[in-house]
Amino acid sequence: MTQVRYFAAAEEFAGRATEQRDDATLGALRRTLAADYPALGVILPRCAVLVDGRRSDDETALGAASVVDVLPPFAGG
């Protein structure tokens, strides 16, 4: 299963720091996260979502060893 790690406001809105998911693609994962955590779904389009440390598109396949980081926008510079 894919490990999903939430940071800052994403962690607050998901109600957890990490979890395991079995979605086949990043796009499927985004849709299920938005459905499962409506507050996270509001900011998810603005979040940086990394798969194994790289920005990825919705067609990116997720596997058992994948790590997805959900990073909300940060203020400041």
Score class of each variant (00 low, 15 high):
residue 62 L to V: 06
residue 76 G to R: 03
residue 41 G to P: 05
residue 15 G to S: 05
residue 14 A to S: 09
residue 75 A to S: 15
residue 44 L to N: 05
residue 57 D to W: 03
residue 28 A to M: 03
residue 6 Y to M: 12
residue 32 T to C: 03
residue 48 A to I: 13
residue 47 C to G: 07
residue 9 A to F: 14
residue 38 P to H: 08
residue 58 D to W: 06
residue 76 G to N: 08
residue 32 T to Y: 01
residue 76 G to T: 04
residue 46 R to W: 07
residue 1 M to Y: 10
residue 36 D to F: 01
residue 26 L to Y: 02
residue 34 A to H: 07
residue 55 R to E: 08
residue 61 A to Y: 03
residue 61 A to D: 05
residue 22 D to T: 15
residue 4 V to C: 14
residue 18 T to C: 10
residue 8 A to P: 14
residue 66 S to F: 08
residue 57 D to Y: 04
residue 5 R to E: 13
residue 51 V to C: 05
residue 13 F to W: 09
residue 56 S to Q: 11
residue 5 R to V: 12
residue 25 T to M: 10
residue 53 G to V: 09
residue 22 D to W: 10
residue 74 F to Q: 11
residue 71 L to S: 02
residue 77 G to W: 00
residue 68 V to Q: 00
residue 20 Q to I: 10
residue 18 T to P: 02
residue 14 A to F: 03
residue 22 D to P: 07
residue 52 D to K: 09
residue 77 G to Q: 00
residue 44 L to P: 03
residue 71 L to R: 01
residue 53 G to H: 11
residue 51 V to S: 03
residue 54 R to C: 07
residue 22 D to H: 11
residue 69 D to W: 05
residue 43 I to K: 01
residue 2 T to H: 12
residue 44 L to T: 06
residue 36 D to Q: 09
residue 31 R to P: 03
residue 3 Q to N: 12
residue 12 E to Q: 15
residue 19 E to D: 14
residue 57 D to T: 12
residue 1 M to Q: 12
residue 38 P to Q: 08
residue 56 S to V: 02
residue 38 P to T: 07
residue 47 C to T: 06
residue 58 D to A: 11
residue 26 L to N: 00
residue 42 V to P: 00
residue 56 S to M: 03
residue 18 T to F: 06
residue 66 S to W: 09
residue 29 L to G: 01
residue 8 A to T: 15
residue 72 P to S: 08
residue 16 R to F: 10
residue 59 E to W: 04
residue 12 E to I: 10
residue 17 A to P: 08
residue 25 T to A: 12
residue 42 V to I: 14
residue 39 A to M: 11
residue 64 A to K: 11
residue 40 L to M: 08
residue 53 G to D: 11
